[in-house]
Amino acid sequence: MPRSRALRNRFVDAPGSLGERLRVARWERFRRCFPGIESMRVVDLGGTAEMWLRAPARAKHVHLINLEEHPAGLPDWITAEVADVTDPAIAAELSSHGGYDLVFSNSTIEHVGGHSQRLKFVSAVEQLAPLHWIQTPYRYFPVEPHFVAPGFQFLPLTARARLVRHWPLVHSRPDSPESAMNAVINIELLTRAEMRYLFPRSVLLSERVLGATKSLMAVRTEPAC
């Protein structure tokens, strides 16, 4: 394993890492909000089978929707398709199927491509199920979570694109200026005000690290958690 990947693993991905401990704590909070998750049909916008297979919470059924290909050989309680849920036609087709109890989304809304696309994402969330859990990293947390770089999100775009080609904690190092720009331009971290605007009828929860808000979750559940 490259040294940079090993270093990232130590902080973010490996069992026992800070990132893993935070994910476990988030799942525990999720279970408190949705204690009946084992009997729910979940549609996951932007999720992966790997995440659910590692999760301490298992739904009755999970349908994954992502722009990337899904692995073959999924267990019978997970189905998947490649689709863009911000396409109104796709969202309408999915909602016509019915049967979803909960929309789940983890660190996806900040990638969909601008305010108008986020509004389409929210519209899909509202169409697909009566309950939801939509998590996103908080813009003003001191460390940008995708690149594990302090203050990275506050740099000019061109500076971010240059830095990402050399920063040791990136997940996949861009191999050209074009791919570096593509890596950073498609991430728009959200503020608390934006999440309240997008989800006015949801409860907005904060995930904190050392007193600082790291992530925000727009949650609709009954009763409120």
Results as ranks from 00 to 15, higher is better:
residue 6 A to I: 13
residue 7 L to P: 02
residue 8 R to W: 06
residue 9 N to T: 13
residue 11 F to C: 09
residue 15 P to Q: 07
residue 16 G to V: 04
residue 17 S to Y: 04
residue 19 G to L: 07
residue 20 E to V: 12
residue 20 E to D: 15
residue 24 V to T: 15
residue 27 W to K: 08
residue 30 F to D: 03
residue 30 F to N: 04
residue 31 R to P: 10
residue 32 R to Q: 15
residue 33 C to K: 10
residue 35 P to G: 11
residue 35 P to D: 11
residue 36 G to T: 14
residue 39 S to F: 12
residue 39 S to E: 14
residue 39 S to K: 09
residue 42 V to A: 01
residue 42 V to S: 03
residue 43 V to H: 02
residue 46 G to Q: 00
residue 47 G to H: 00
residue 47 G to L: 00
residue 48 T to F: 04
residue 54 R to Q: 13
residue 61 H to W: 11
residue 62 V to K: 00
residue 62 V to C: 03
residue 63 H to T: 12
residue 63 H to M: 08
residue 63 H to D: 05
residue 68 E to L: 14
residue 69 E to C: 12
residue 70 H to W: 03
residue 71 P to G: 04
residue 72 A to N: 13
residue 73 G to M: 06
residue 75 P to G: 05
residue 76 D to C: 05
residue 78 I to F: 05
residue 79 T to P: 05
residue 80 A to F: 07
residue 81 E to K: 09
residue 82 V to I: 11
residue 83 A to L: 07
residue 83 A to I: 12
residue 88 P to A: 14
residue 89 A to I: 14
residue 90 I to P: 00
residue 91 A to I: 09
residue 93 E to Y: 13
residue 93 E to N: 15
residue 95 S to F: 08
residue 100 Y to K: 04
residue 103 V to K: 02
residue 104 F to Q: 00
residue 105 S to N: 01
residue 106 N to M: 00
residue 108 T to F: 03
residue 112 V to I: 05
residue 113 G to M: 03
residue 114 G to A: 05
residue 117 Q to T: 08
residue 120 K to F: 11
residue 121 F to R: 03
residue 121 F to S: 01
residue 122 V to Q: 03
residue 123 S to H: 11
residue 125 V to F: 02
residue 125 V to C: 02
residue 127 Q to N: 10
residue 127 Q to Y: 09
residue 127 Q to A: 12
residue 128 L to M: 08
residue 129 A to V: 10
residue 129 A to Y: 06
residue 129 A to P: 13
residue 133 W to T: 00
residue 133 W to E: 00
residue 134 I to L: 04
residue 135 Q to G: 07
residue 140 Y to G: 07
residue 142 P to T: 10
residue 144 E to F: 06
residue 144 E to K: 09
residue 145 P to G: 06
residue 145 P to E: 05
residue 145 P to C: 06
residue 146 H to E: 10
residue 146 H to T: 14
residue 154 F to L: 12
residue 156 P to T: 09
residue 156 P to V: 12
residue 157 L to K: 15
residue 160 R to P: 15
residue 162 R to V: 14
residue 162 R to Q: 14
residue 164 V to C: 04
residue 165 R to Q: 13
residue 166 H to A: 14
residue 168 P to E: 04
residue 171 H to M: 15
residue 172 S to E: 13
residue 175 D to P: 12
residue 177 P to V: 10
residue 181 M to A: 09
residue 182 N to S: 13
residue 182 N to L: 10
residue 183 A to S: 06
residue 183 A to I: 01
residue 183 A to P: 04
residue 185 I to A: 06
residue 188 E to W: 01
residue 192 R to P: 04
residue 192 R to E: 04
residue 193 A to G: 08
residue 199 F to M: 06
residue 203 V to R: 15
residue 203 V to D: 15
residue 203 V to G: 11
residue 204 L to Y: 02
residue 205 L to W: 06
residue 207 E to R: 05
residue 208 R to C: 13
residue 212 A to W: 15
residue 213 T to I: 11
residue 216 L to G: 01
residue 220 R to T: 05
residue 220 R to W: 07
residue 225 C to S: 13
